[in-house]
């Protein structure tokens, strides 16, 4: 079973592709809406700015296809900006609409917390604390590279949280949908295992 990785032209895909190869799956890069709708497993990676990322999804006509996958609870892995773009909006690009299928808004980390300065971007490892009803997510250290974050797990999702000055969403999950603020493809053996569980869950659909 091939994994379709959404290629919007600027995200750094090599790490994700290498991680999937290490799990023994073959991958295809796509920017076709029909593939994003039909493929059994889809990965939406993402680095860079929210506005630019949404602009490219719109150019490629992928916004509706991605929204449909989430609404229909079909296997999708979204990473970092990929997660953020599923929401309604982000403080990073206030005039740009997100895909809007996850009902929340992305915020910047505060500049300081309790009078002490917060290091932003968060670049490094942080503890992931899954909620009790999480299935795919397990506790462990994950690698983050983000300046923006979702403040709370929205209704209809399980997930996990981490703390960087403030408590924020580490990841959301609902069935075969997994949306991570951290980078599972860069999170060592823990991330490798999480990707493996998502693949297994997705293949069962």
């Amino acid at each position: 079973m091939k994994v379709a990785v959404v290629d919007t032209g600027t995200a750094n895909l090599a790490s994700m592709l290498a991680a999937l190869r290490r799990l023994g799956v073959s991958t295809e890069l796509t920017r076709e809406a029909a593939r994003v709708v039909d493929a059994p497993l889809v990965v939406l990676p993402g680095v860079g700015a929210f506005g630019a990322g949404m602009g490219r999804l719109r150019e490629c006509g992928l916004v509706d296809a991605l929204a449909a996958r989430v609404r229909e609870t079909r296997p999708l892995l979204a990473v970092c900006l990929g997660l953020q773009m599923l929401t309604r909006s982000s403080e990073e690009s206030p005039k740009v609409d997100g895909i809007g299928v996850i009902p929340c808004a992305v915020r910047r980390f505060p500049a300081d917390v309790g009078g002490s300065r917060l290091v932003v971007p968060q670049l490094g490892w942080n503890m992931v604390e899954p909620r009790r009803d999480a299935v795919l997510l397990q506790p462990g250290h994950a690698y983050y590279a983000n300046s923006f974050q979702l403040p709370a797990i929205p209704d209809g999702y399980s997930g996990a949280e981490s703390v960087h000055g403030v408590r924020f969403v580490a990841a959301l999950e609902r069935g075969p949908i997994l949306a991570c603020q951290f980078h599972p493809e860069l999170s060592g053996p823990w991330g490798h295992a999480l990707l493996g569980r998502w693949l297994e869950r997705g293949r069962a659909c």
């Binding site: 090599a14 290498a18 060592g188 490798h192």
Partner: peptide, 12 residues
């Protein structure tokens, strides 16, 4: 870089 990436599961 390509050879390192193939085996490396942490940030580079």
């Amino acid at each position: 870089v390509r050879r390192v990436r193939e085996v490396l599961g942490i940030p580079l």
